[in-house]
Amino acid sequence: MSSSDLFVSAEGAEWVNPEPGVVRRIMTYLPEMMMVEVAFESGAVGAAHSHPHIQASYVAEGSFEVTIDGRTEVLKQGGSFIVPPNLVHGVKALEKGRLIDAFTPHRAEFLK
């Protein structure tokens, strides 16, 4: 890794549209960890799914209905949640908002 890889400007990150009303961009990553910004329109859903990565998420803006392993709670700006490996989880944006997700290890499929 070169020293230029240690810093990523917002302009250098490409947005992708994984689901209706949802866009995400990789903020930075190493093999051991990845940070991703995910923006949601009001009512948009991050469909229930699971993966072998540990995921920690911070509500940077808005409010979300978050379901992890069948348990649902509403989190507002400043709230956070963590998802152990392989648990089914998903979110619904109760208003326009953004999540900052961290994954360990990185999500290789996001790099394709």
Rank of each mutant, 00 (worst) to 15 (best):
G90K: 12
I82E: 14
P20T: 01
E73H: 08
P85S: 12
Q55D: 08
V59D: 02
S9D: 15
D69T: 01
V91R: 04
H51P: 04
M33N: 06
F40T: 03
P18T: 07
R24L: 15
G43P: 07
V38L: 04
F81Y: 10
L30A: 15
I54G: 08
S80W: 12
G21E: 02
L30T: 15
W15R: 13
S80Y: 13
V16F: 14
R98M: 13
H106V: 01
A10E: 15
A10F: 12
K76P: 03
G43E: 13
A39E: 09
M34S: 07
R24K: 13
F81P: 00
F103M: 03
T67M: 11
A13D: 03
G79S: 01
F64H: 05
F7D: 05
Q55P: 02
S2M: 14
E41C: 04
P20F: 11
V8R: 13
I68V: 15
L99E: 08
L30C: 08
V16I: 13
E95M: 04
S9Y: 11
A44N: 03
A10Q: 10
M1K: 12
A47K: 14
Q55I: 01
Y29K: 06
V45Q: 04
R25I: 00
I54W: 07
G78E: 06
P105W: 10
A47C: 13
V38D: 04
M33G: 05
G78K: 06
I54Q: 13
R24G: 11
A10T: 11
E11C: 09
P31M: 06
R98F: 09
Y29P: 00
Y58P: 01
G90E: 14
F103I: 01
A102N: 06
A102T: 08
R107W: 04
M1G: 15
V22R: 10
E61P: 02
V66W: 07
A56E: 12
V23P: 00
R71H: 15
T72V: 01
T72L: 07
P31W: 06
H106A: 06
K96Q: 14
V88D: 15
A13P: 04
V83M: 07
V16A: 15
V66P: 01
E41K: 08
S2R: 12
S80E: 13
F81R: 02
G97H: 00
H53E: 13
A48L: 08
S57R: 02
S63F: 04
L94S: 03
E109P: 06
V23L: 11
P20M: 10
V36K: 07
S4A: 15
G78V: 00
L30N: 12
S63A: 14
F40A: 10
S4N: 11
S4T: 15
F103Y: 09
K96P: 05
A93D: 03
H53M: 11
H49E: 10
A93E: 02
L111I: 06
E95Q: 06
V66M: 10
A93Q: 05
P31R: 07
S80I: 11
